[in-house]
Amino acid sequence: MNIVVLAKLIPDLVEELEIDDSGTALDMTWLRLIINELDDHAIEEAILLKERTGANVTVLAPDIEGVDDILFTAAAKGAERLIKIVGDYESGVNNHALARVLTPVMKDLQPDLILVGVEAHEDLDGSIGPLLAGYLDLPFIGYVASIELEDGKATATKEYPGGLSVEMEVTLPVVLGIQVAEEPPRYVAVSKVRQAMKTAEIEELEAGDFDLAGGPTIDRMYQPEVSEGATIIDGSLDDIADSLIGIFKELGVQ
């Protein structure tokens, strides 16, 4: 049983985002990158499946600054194989292009199961799971919260809005978009990650040229603008509380 997890680094929202001079993209100078949280859940789910079934886990990620850390961390958790896809990501790569580049790589790896976070906050042209499944001609189930593997089949529990869950049985191979792992992603001690840095190896594969077709063209990227319907109350806490009380009274709140 081969499980391949696809993980991406995305902008960390702990820092304020800034738009670059072109006005169509994020300014990367000060941007911090972080593993997409749902991809982290996908890695955790893969490791849990490995612990239950003895599957092999490969983690695959685009070669963006910080990728070694997330790959070595995955190795410290138990992933056997680490691969980064080297390419020119600077000029902006969309999910269509990435999915096309990953298609032959995935075919070579012959996975029984591909896990990926069901979405990322920077997905502008749809999430990557279904795109990848499309190019690979495999079934896709998204918003998965748990997986059982048996006899060449997977039973995935998919979450729907309104607290509804549905179990679906699907023949492998399949691409699953992970909403949440069965347990929160585990913490690995820094000493274990450092150990993995010494022992684990990261394979490099060339992405080749990115074909951006199918993705959006961005005319303008901008910070949310304050609309006219809203009033922002400034001042000290006391002033703000006073104005609020005034407003409530005016509106007739007793």
């Binding site: 929160p184 585990r186 000493s191």
Partner: peptide, 12 residues
């Protein structure tokens, strides 16, 4: 305990 992964989530 930490190396064993026996760590409360809050602390993680």
């Amino acid at each position: 305990l930490l190396l064993e992964g026996n760590v409360p989530t809050e602390l993680q």
